[in-house]
């Protein structure tokens, strides 16, 4: 009769499993859903901060703003050559200042090479093909 009792116990356990999720399975579902919700929330917040802080406009790794081949080659060549850095230690004499002036004038030349930065004409009505108001 023992085998009959075991069968009846198994039937009851089966009924429990068929009608209702077990405690462990329910918790696993809750954990999974909670992890997904948390991931979506944190990702949304970080994207919002990235956009609102303005970093998105300074990021050149986004599509359409990646450096082109020429620019990448220039970056590599400038990285290879040692960038001059004036030391904050040491004496101040004529020789030191002569070298300083020579190096900083190179930087000034780089800046001047962009002769007309952000010209207004690029966004003018004429450039965009909008007729002028008569």
């Amino acid at each position: 009769m023992k085998w009959l009792k075991n069968d009846r116990n198994d039937e009851k356990a089966g009924e429990v499993k068929a009608g209702r999720m077990s405690f462990g399975a329910r918790n696993l579902w809750i954990l999974g859903a909670g992890a997904i919700v948390l991931a979506i929330l944190t990702t949304s917040v970080s994207i919002l901060i990235y956009h609102n802080s303005g970093d998105i406009y300074l990021d050149r790794s986004r599509p359409g703003y990646l450096p082109d081949e020429e620019e990448a080659a220039d970056d590599r060549s400038s990285a290879d050559s040692s960038e001059y850095k004036f030391s904050e230690m040491g004496e101040v004499n004529g020789e030191v200042l002569d070298e300083y002036i020579k190096e900083i004038e190179k930087v000034e030349e780089e800046v001047k090479s962009v002769s007309n930065p952000y010209p207004a004409g690029a966004l003018s009505d004429k450039s965009l093909g909008i007729p002028e108001k008569k």
Binding site: E83, Y84, K85, F86, S87, E88, M89, G90, V92, Y100, E103, I104, V107
Partner: peptide, 10 residues
């Protein structure tokens, strides 16, 4: 690399 270090050295 130029302006700040110079003023510090001075």
């Amino acid at each position: 690399n130029f302006i700040v270090p110079l003023n510090l050295r001075l």
